[in-house]
Nucleic acid binder design. Sequence first.
DNA 1: AAATGACCAAATATGATTATCTGGTCAAAT
DNA 2: ATTTGACCAGATAATCATATTTGGTCATTT
Lengths: 235, 235
Amino acid sequence: MARPGRPPQDPARHLERAHRILDAAAELILRWGYDKTTVEDVARAAGVAKGTIYLHWKTRDALFTALLRRDRVRLVEEVRAAEPATLPELIGELTAALLRRPLTRAAVVGDSEVLGKLTRQKLERGTSESDAAFGRYLDELARLGAVRADLTADERTALVTALVYGFLIPQSMLPQDRRLPDKRVAELVADATARALGTGAPPGQDVTRATRAHLDEIEETAAHRLARSLGQETR
Amino acid sequence: MARPGRPPQDPARHLERAHRILDAAAELILRWGYDKTTVEDVARAAGVAKGTIYLHWKTRDALFTALLRRDRVRLVEEVRAAEPATLPELIGELTAALLRRPLTRAAVVGDSEVLGKLTRQKLERGTSESDAAFGRYLDELARLGAVRADLTADERTALVTALVYGFLIPQSMLPQDRRLPDKRVAELVADATARALGTGAPPGQDVTRATRAHLDEIEETAAHRLARSLGQETR
DNA sequence: AAATGACCAAATATGATTATCTGGTCAAAT
DNA sequence: ATTTGACCAGATAATCATATTTGGTCATTT
């Protein structure tokens, strides 16, 4: 039932296949968890041979990293598509998007059911860089008078983090039926962000611009990383 | 080196010994973690025989429960001593007290380093009842115009929970040197609570009274539970 | 009556052995 | 050139036997 050989070396086909593999991986991981999902499984589900997967990624881990990065790119795209103009809108959309994306959501919430042994790792790192960018964005907003200037950069970041994580994590530990609707959670986070960090000043054009710029930067970074993850490079 | 026998059956002495055992347990658990702390260890450190511990508690678990309950009572006492008059003050003091008490803190943050196999358990339950009381308190405040009335009870609770957990958990995952000072964290939580839930209305006498009443209720419950934990009853 | 600590059963750890699985490679097929 | 899948070594799991630990009891002592 084999048909080794070489259908055209079309780079577009190559990329399309990478995505197909990632699709398969996503489904399997969400269903069985990272630990229980083997490369063989993924290959079978994607309709390719195991070796083919290693044509795309050096290691199993690299495949998973690519998967998360793709999810992240899509998340950012969703947020962008909503065209948030202010910090609260941005955070609200971010939260909503997070709640919609099981993989990234699991990574954020630290769901060991899904992530298996990777639970801890994926959380810690990756943060520092993006955090810095977010910190700069908040600084800019403070300069523009859109967020409180009486907090240090660390404090502003901690505050936003607290709101997002503070809603996501406890909610995820609640039994299904006691959780607030996802949409409502996003609204509450947005609202709380406005109240806890905002100044009440009407947001000007410059805030919109800064927000857009920040999203550009985030997407740029995310897209770049994904590209690296899809172009054989590992680590 | 033994001296079995029966120094007076003074109930005060009995209680004092219970506390001595708990002191020993607390120290050992904080140093070695729950899993690695044996009943024998505790007995030795407390200067009693192992059997004596079982004169106080039916199981090792009951001892640990008592320990947490005592810590909770002390926490509540500390909060009370600060005489918070408003919700933000209450939450701020609660956070500060939480940060000062390694055991309860570990329980809240879910520190498996300390709690060992109990990490999960202790979190989930025990909540429902106290949660209900807190919910009623928030309701009362809403009625008094001290907190926003445009939120459901669940939402108000979720919001406060988010603030406290949202600060404690991410901070606990940060490397020591990047954490904000405990005191500052408490201030930020208090401030955020005021902004996110407050109405801006000046707090009246009735708010103070409601807050005090709530603390009374909490302490009452906590003290009652501790008493049960120290008076042989197990479960 | 009150406290002890030797004692026991059950749990847990250790180790040795074997079996199974799975990440990753690469010669072969086209 | 490209894809495959048999193949391999190392990791992981399963099994079984043995040793150690430890939660909990209770006859004994004061």
